[in-house]
């Protein structure tokens, strides 16, 4: 990127700040000028569960971009082990440790 001018990078950063501010704060700032129907308001309580699974599932089931349920993809067994641990003990750090442990063992075994 050494051939890209500093001013261009600064302009890109300003664009990124604006785009991030608009998307994150925009809805909080429109206030009463926009009223959502009760149906939409009610539907939005499902947004956290849906957003998180939409973020997590592709990362776990297809880190290379396509669905991969073979053991060559160590992430899905690791996530399963982590979820099982979380059901057993509600301990977030433990869940991450179990998941990363399983992941590392599978990756090393596959070598």
């Amino acid at each position: 990127m050494n051939n890209v001018a500093t001013s261009d990078v600064l302009l890109a950063i300003v664009s990124l700040v604006l785009a991030t501010f608009i998307t994150r704060a925009g809805m909080l700032l429109v206030g009463d000028r926009l009223s959502l129907s009760r149906h939409v308001e009610a539907a939005l309580r499902f947004a956290p569960a849906c957003a998180l699974t939409a973020l997590v599932l592709p990362e776990v089931l297809g880190p290379a971009g396509v669905l991969d349920l073979s053991l060559g993809n160590a992430r899905w067994p690791a996530a399963l082990a982590s979820a099982a641990f979380l059901l057993w003990r509600n301990n977030v750090l433990g869940g991450i440790a179990v998941g990363m442990g399983t992941y590392t063992v599978l990756v090393v075994l596959a070598r």
Partner: peptide
């Protein structure tokens, strides 16, 4: 080295109560 997978795992406990 699969570091970002730790970030994904941190999201799991947040999903579980809502499902």
């Amino acid at each position: 080295w699969g570091l970002q997978f730790a970030g994904t795992l941190a999201l799991l406990p947040l999903v579980m109560p809502s499902v």
